[in-house]
């Protein structure tokens, strides 16, 4: 298994953790098509915005979206999202630096970094045996004990926010922890293995070898890993766009007509309009993928919608 040396990000685990507002599952579609920015997406608004988007994607104006136009349009969208995600991630890194620099002397010493590291290791090591196994249970999330004060029927707050496209390896789960620290791929992380990875990270960041990390050293090393991850994720996104086009291009003529484009949009709309009121908003219950037996019902529903669409796009 390839060694992926990334720093354990622990401030999120050690600072008091409120129940974070997760993005609503329909955020993507709302944010993309909500022209009047009232955080609600009625069918009419969606149709209008989807039409505009087809026109914008069809750059040679021949009434067809071909594969390259489709992928090019997607690339434009994700470039912006990656830029926003990147900015937020770098900002967090500066915050993290200040949190790790406990004595606020402007440097992270090996002791300060190890202190954070040990807290993270201990947090993962539920049975406190100095060893973390791939088969270990997930650690109890901090703040969970506060939950018992919450009413059973209280819904968690959902926000209208894009899910980040950019995800760095995380240590909030056993799998994430293994990915980062299990250097020899033996499905367990010993203290020694853990410390080696962290020492390597320190050394790699310490440009002038003075045994201390400045904010710049810390952040620039993170940016190296961040940009590598962006490159990987970007390529994956582009690949997926080709795949998506392939799926939608049922007759394989590498051309998507306006009607096909609108229909694919409608399928998406229907999926997220979970309360079936012709409007997508934060009020819709979160969309959950249904098991196969129910998907037939969905197809019928989409058939009805397809009729409506066909009428609308004539």
């Amino acid at each position: 298994m390839r060694t992926r040396a990334s720093l354990l990000i622990l401030t999120a685990l050690t600072a008091p953790q409120a129940l974070l507002a997760a993005p609503h599952s329909a955020s993507g579609i709302i944010l993309t098509y909500d022209l009047n920015q009232d955080q609600k997406l009625p069918l009419e608004e969606f149709v209008a915005a989807r039409r505009d988007r087809f026109a914008a994607t069809d750059t040679d104006n021949n009434g067809i979206v071909d594969e390259s136009e489709y992928v090019y349009e997607w690339e434009g969208k994700i470039t912006q999202r990656f830029a926003e995600d990147r900015k937020a991630s770098v900002k967090q890194t500066h915050v993290r630096f200040k949190a790790i620099d406990k004595d606020e002397d402007g440097f992270i010493s090996p002791e300060e970094l190890n202190a954070i590291g040990q807290r993270g290791f201990d947090y993962m090591d539920a049975d406190k045996d100095g060893l973390i196994l791939a088969s270990d249970p997930e650690p109890k999330r901090r703040g969970e004990s506060d939950k018992k004060d919450k009413k059973a029927d209280e819904k968690p707050q959902r926000t209208l926010a894009q899910r980040p496209l950019l995800r760095m390896p995380t240590t909030h789960s056993i799998k994430g922890f293994m990915d980062l620290y299990d250097s020899n791929g033996d499905e367990k992380v010993t203290q020694e293995e853990f410390q080696n990875v962290r020492d390597e990270h320190f050394k790699r960041s310490d440009e002038n070898n003075d045994g201390l990390l400045t904010e710049q050293e810390y952040v620039l090393e993170f940016e190296d890993r961040l940009d590598k991850q962006i490159e990987k994720s970007y390529e994956a996104q582009v690949k997926q766009a080709y795949v998506r086009f392939g799926v939608l291009d049922k007759n394989e003529d590498k051309a998507m007509t306006f009607s096909e484009y609108m229909q694919s949009g409608f399928r998406s709309f229907t999926r997220h309009d979970t309360n079936e009121d012709g409007l997508i908003s934060l009020e819709d219950p979160i969309y959950k993928r249904k098991p196969k037996s129910e998907s037939k019902k969905d197809e019928d529903k989409q058939g009805d919608t397809a009729t409506v669409i066909a009428k609308a796009t004539r």
């Binding site: 440009e207 620039l220 940016e223 190296d224 940009d227 490159e231």
Partner: peptide, 14 residues
């Protein structure tokens, strides 16, 4: 590319 630019800047710095 960002990474390459950063690498060149780092090289000069050290």
């Amino acid at each position: 590319e960002r990474r390459e630019a950063r690498k060149l800047a780092r090289s000069a710095r050290v």
